Computed example of a mutant assay.
Amino acid sequence: MNQLLGDKNTYKVVRVDPTTKLQKKNNSIVNELYKGKHINYREKQQLASSAATAPRLYGLPKIHKPECPLRPISSSINVPCYELSIYLGKILTPLISEDYNIKNSFDLQNRLADVNVCNDDVKRSFWAGDGEVAILDLWEERAADLRSSRKNGHIYKEMANELAKLGYNYTARDIQVKIANFTQRYRKERVEMGPSGGSPSIWPFYARVNQIIGGFKANRFCELMLESIDESSTASSVPTTPSPQLTSTPSTPQPWSNPPSPLPGSSAIEPKKKKNIVSVHTKVMEKFEAVSVEITNYMKKSEENENKFMKIEEEKANALKETAQDNKEPKKAFVAINP
């Protein structure tokens, strides 16, 4: 016990015994209850403390552990609030529901004897590393099936059966949530990398998930947007040459005449396929800056409106004060006339 009490992080040495102070506080509470007619005189005499002692500490050996360490037990018999605690316990006990409380470990064992836990009721808190690799393999095989059908619950069940054959016990719901988490993490990494792929991802499954769903349009929104902007800018930059209008006179074709050569400028001009990424990024940034300027102007207008509103409120308050003062003056005059 001395070794347990030597732990300064758990126990603290006090210079003065607080038992007398706690006894006076307990008796003060009992007197207030008696004055409020919540208890009678006999209950007052029973709850009052006169010769209280400090709690006693002793230890019970833990025989199921090596070296039999002691479990500290604090005995509260004859402490200042001992009788008052028993009195309050009798009042509060009927308010406690037995459905959410147990008496001891034997009561818990009896209640759990008839409880059956299904596999669907068990919540999985983590996935093993090899389990994640296995689900990625199945996802790659069934990716087309998952996207082709709207009602794909049976596909997740089949994937769960395949994982069970490999020794991984996961439900269809677990697999669905895991694939959704993979997709969300992949999109987050894709956004952080940017459309040009400047900063590589440190997520270990990025390359594998990119191989599975990287080609889908839903995951290439940013790149497709930039491509559409670039194509529109390229199409608008290509000059259109008007074809010359020639007036021709009917003539008799000669067998020895050569076929007419194509006019200059009449051949179709193909648009340039090379993309100027720098100009595209510049246009995107210009749009963002324009939006930010609009937001800033809106905030300034809102601040101005708020200042105007505050001025109006101040004018209202001043008008009310002046009205109140004007109302006081006739009263004073009336009192002066009729003393």
Results as ranks from 00 to 15, higher is better:
112 L>C: 09
121 D>F: 07
132 E>T: 05
165 K>Q: 11
55 P>N: 01
190 R>N: 05
190 R>E: 03
126 F>W: 03
186 Y>K: 01
130 D>W: 04
125 S>I: 05
59 G>F: 05
134 A>K: 03
100 Y>R: 12
136 L>C: 04
179 I>D: 02
144 A>T: 12
94 P>G: 06
165 K>Y: 10
119 N>Q: 01
180 A>L: 06
142 R>Q: 11
92 L>R: 10
79 V>A: 03
92 L>E: 15
144 A>S: 13
139 W>R: 05
193 M>E: 08
98 E>W: 00
86 I>S: 14
177 V>H: 12
77 I>Q: 13
173 R>T: 15
147 R>L: 11
49 S>N: 01
90 K>Y: 08
72 P>L: 04
140 E>M: 08
154 H>V: 11
160 A>D: 07
158 E>G: 05
157 K>I: 11
73 I>Y: 07
121 D>S: 10
83 E>W: 01
150 R>T: 04
55 P>Q: 05
180 A>Y: 06
70 L>R: 14
76 S>K: 09
176 Q>P: 00
112 L>Q: 05
136 L>I: 00
186 Y>D: 06
58 Y>L: 12
95 L>T: 15
141 E>H: 06
171 T>Y: 08
122 V>K: 04
146 L>M: 06
71 R>G: 03
86 I>H: 14
137 D>N: 08
127 W>V: 00
138 L>W: 01
150 R>W: 09
56 R>L: 15
122 V>H: 09
176 Q>L: 06
85 S>G: 07
149 S>D: 13
48 A>V: 14
113 A>Q: 12
50 S>D: 12
123 K>C: 00
189 E>W: 02
133 V>F: 00
88 L>P: 09
